[in-house]
Design a protein around this nucleic acid. Structure first.
Length: 135
DNA sequence: GCCAACGTTGGC
DNA sequence: GCCAACGTTGGC
């Protein structure tokens, strides 16, 4: 099983909305690297749900429930999305500042490529963030 | 609101 | 195919 991190601006799509809605298509990704990451996702993979811009923190964990398929919001038909479902919230949100300040996490893809909206998380990083999040 | 990083577009 | 111009993302 692999681990990921998906970003969303809470103004546009927040964790609360995800919880309320249950399963949603993660549409709107228009970056090839991010799209490639989604193509690598398998059903059952887990992803941190990160609030960008406002909050700048990891607030919950989502599960991948459907692998990459065409994104209906993409008129060119080139991009894909996966379906995700809210799994559980972190007891304590893990902030970007915390991640940057932690030597175990400072080299995460999230930090190295700040503009990449779907990025991979290593097993060690996943475990450490879960611990910081009180899980 | 500013700016750095980076992706995309279009002229050549 | 190169590269300058421009647009977007996202942290601060």
């Amino acid at each position: 099983m692999a681990y990921w991190l998906i970003k969303s601006e809470p103004d546009v799509w927040s964790w609360d909305q995800q919880v309320k809605k249950g399963i949603t298509g993660w549409d709107g990704v228009r970056n090839h690297q991010a799209a490639n990451n989604m193509k690598s996702m398998k059903v059952g993979d887990q992803a941190f749900f990160y609030h960008s811009n406002e909050g700048r923190e990891i607030v919950g964990i989502a599960t991948i429930v459907k692998t990459a398929h065409p994104d209906p919001s993409d008129e060119t038909g080139k991009f894909v999305m996966v379906d995700v479902k809210a799994d559980k919230p972190l007891k304590k949100a893990v902030t970007l500042a915390q991640i940057k300040a932690d030597p175990k996490l400072a080299s995460m893809a999230l930090i190295r490529q700040s503009r990449l909206s779907v990025c991979a998380v290593s097993d060690a990083e996943w475990a450490h963030i879960c611990k910081l999040g009180g899980l």
